[in-house]
């Protein structure tokens, strides 16, 4: 209100057109530049809770010639259980506890990376929070995005969570050894996957039996 006559100024309309995700996008872009400059491949490893993200990494660690210059950042709401499991398999693993945050934002990843000498790594893998919704939105500067599913999850999961599956370079269907016992219709899941991710590569694995782990290792190189 103006001091002289008490008039109100005309409302001002601004066409702002800024993204609410811009801060994460900027941080992710900076990370991507840094990774590229180092020649470091980076994998964003996504799934719903319980598909076998950590178990698959344990199997990969057991198969890969030692020592494997792989760095893993594990994000969970709570506990450092997954980082400990990976450390027990000889991997350099750092745990990020996100508290109530349902995804790993680029800023938290950046902080976790301070605990690595990135120039001494051949590969960086980010085991994201178990969640098929939010992590899809948050770029981390990765060069490969992998989504893990498990036999026994609904065959229509891909069409229920189109954003994350559409963004996947590689989809791993784990626990394939349980398919028969769970009456899992693989062909139906693949059809749904093709609807949202026609170009994604698909691998079938079983962390328990070791099936497909070697092919997965080759795909991640």
């Amino acid at each position: 209100m103006c001091g002289r006559c008490g008039c109100e100024p005309e409302p001002l309309t601004l066409q702002v057109q800024t993204s609410l995700l811009q801060r994460n996008a900027a941080a992710a872009a900076a990370l991507r530049q840094r990774f590229t400059a180092l020649g470091l491949p980076v994998i964003n490893w996504l799934s719903a809770p319980g598909s076998g993200k950590t178990a698959l990494l344990e199997q990969l660690a057991a198969l890969h010639p030692q020592p494997w210059r792989l760095g893993v950042v594990v994000a969970d709401l709570a506990t450092d259980n997954d980082a400990r499991r990976l450390q027990q398999h000889g991997l350099q693993a750092v745990q990020v506890s996100t508290g109530t945050l349902c995804h790993l934002p680029a800023a938290l990843l950046e902080r976790a990376l301070q605990r690595f000498d990135l120039s001494a790594l051949d590969l960086l893998l980010i085991e994201n929070v178990g969640n098929l919704v939010c992590p899809a939105l948050f770029d981390l500067g990765e060069s490969l995005r992998v989504v893990v599913l498990a036999a026994g999850e609904g065959e229509d999961k891909p069409i229920k969570y189109p954003a994350v599956f559409a963004s996947a370079d590689l989809v791993v269907i784990n626990k394939i050894d349980l398919a028969a016992a769970l009456d899992f219709d693989l062909e139906l899941m693949l059809r749904h996957l093709r609807q949202v991710a026609p170009r994604a590569r698909v691998l079938l694995t079983s962390a328990r039996s070791g099936d497909g782990i070697e092919r997965l290792l080759v795909a991640l190189r």
């Binding site: 109100e8 100024p9 409302p11 001002l12 309309t13 601004l14 066409q15 702002v16 057109q17 800024t18 993204s19 609410l20 995700l21 899809a136 939105l137 954003a163």
Partner: peptide
């Protein structure tokens, strides 16, 4: 699409 955009603000 997948973005969330602050399109416009009206300030008084």
């Amino acid at each position: 699409g997948r973005d969330l955009v602050l399109a416009a603000l009206e300030l008084g």
